[in-house]
Design a protein around this nucleic acid. Structure first.
Lengths: 234, 234
DNA sequence: ACAACTATGTTTAGTTA
DNA sequence: ATAACTAAACATAGTTG
């Protein structure tokens, strides 16, 4: 009713857009602001409604960071990075048969594979038992791309290396870290410390960070596309 | 028009709800699933539309984690935790006077502090000379420049180490990596390759991980409320 | 637990101030 | 950049299999 008058529309209203990189800089920025705010709001609502603990980190293409965290960024990252299971709410775990249960078949498969890999590694080389001292070694020095071994004599001052050398070192270091992280994860699973279905290798680094719960604005960034997500079942 | 018939409604449709803890367990779980999916979708859209890099971590009250990360969880957390500024997109920094500019004084402060820390570390080196054997500690070989890195010579069985040792090693490794990464960034700034405002091509580390990543499910948690967020200006 | 299904409630693209 | 305003697009609460 009361539709007799065809009143002129003031705007054409929201228009559907394709989900692909916005080419117009201005609309990209505006959209970024609006949607970022939208996500933060949703995150806050989720955390209130469902008692969930949520963290959101966003880097703009200009390199600024924005984040939301409940109960705090720090807490969430600690939980995530350490793989420590945060205290469960009794209500929700009461009927929870196996929140994280992995099918036995799958578990066995992974387990056997892990064992096999383990055997292979054992065949490779030997020695090194005083490795416990490694910690000190690694923490003590930062060396470089030199014939000399990095831990010998005095540490190599990073200043002595040129940018390329440092870059190369950095790449290699990251690679090693990943390997060790993977091994660590594996051990914890074999150990029983970790659930077979648990998260992939966790960079220890994150456990070391203690940043404020919410920040905005420092710089740098580079954008790629094609994120993925998933998750059903609480 | 055509509203003469008061056709019976099949459902009463969506109803407004107050944003407060849902008491009903079932609806809480359902809402959690739906809204979590919603946030992940929004995050993915934001990252595609605006070229933003986004990470979302959600802990259910049952203690399961769900996450979304673009280009990867690891990358975002690395950026966030290390404070390393990800590479900026030229378009977006063009008119950006100093999105991320760090006051010279502050920069100097950080730099001096890093140097001092380095000095301290040098002093510690002496007590770990015997660790030379450590060169065989890390397993695989990491390809690289003509020079060989310390871990390249022979691989070592990580199995020789127990979990705690590996963990220590991992933490220490990460620490070193961070220092090198920081130094790398610093060098490029000092270098002129990069002025404090404009940023260099991606730090090598991050170039290694550009996979969207997603996980779900391990356990534990505890819910409190009162998150905060913020952020305006790109 | 999950999948449809609507009928709303909510977000937001485009526009203007 | 930020804010307001619409109208359309989208998300989702409640309900039913």
């Amino acid at each position: 009713m009361v539709l007799l008058k065809n009143l002129p529309k003031k705007t054409q209203g929201r228009k559907r857009i394709e989900i692909k990189k916005l080419e117009n800089l201005n609309s990209k920025q505006v959209t970024f602001s609006k949607r970022r705010a939208g996500i933060f709001k949703k995150a806050a609502e989720l955390s209130v409604l469902c008692g969930a603990d949520v963290a959101v980190i966003v880097f703009s293409t200009a390199g600024k960071v924005f984040c939301y965290g409940h109960p705090s960024m720090d807490t969430i990252l600690d939980w995530y990075c350490s793989g420590v299971t945060p205290p469960a709410v009794s209500d929700d775990t009461a009927g929870d048969q196996s929140p994280n249960r992995v099918p036995v078949a799958e578990f066995n498969k992974d387990y056997m594979e892990a064992i096999r890999e383990l055997e292979e590694q054992k065949k490779r080389v030997v020695e090194v038992k005083e490795a416990a001292k490694m910690k000190k070694v690694v923490m003590g020095v930062v060396g470089g791309c030199d014939e000399r071994f990095w831990w010998e004599d005095e540490s190599v001052d990073l200043d002595a290396l040129d940018v390329q050398e440092v870059e190369h070192y950095l790449i290699a270091l990251e690679d090693v870290r990943k390997k060790v992280a993977a091994r660590f994860h594996e051990m914890k699973i074999l150990n029983g410390t970790l659930n077979p279905g648990a998260l992939p290798p966790i960079p220890a680094v994150h456990r070391l960070c203690h940043l404020p719960m919410m920040t905005n604005g420092f710089s740098g960034h580079g954008g790629q596309f094609g994120g993925g997500y998933h998750g059903f079942g609480i």
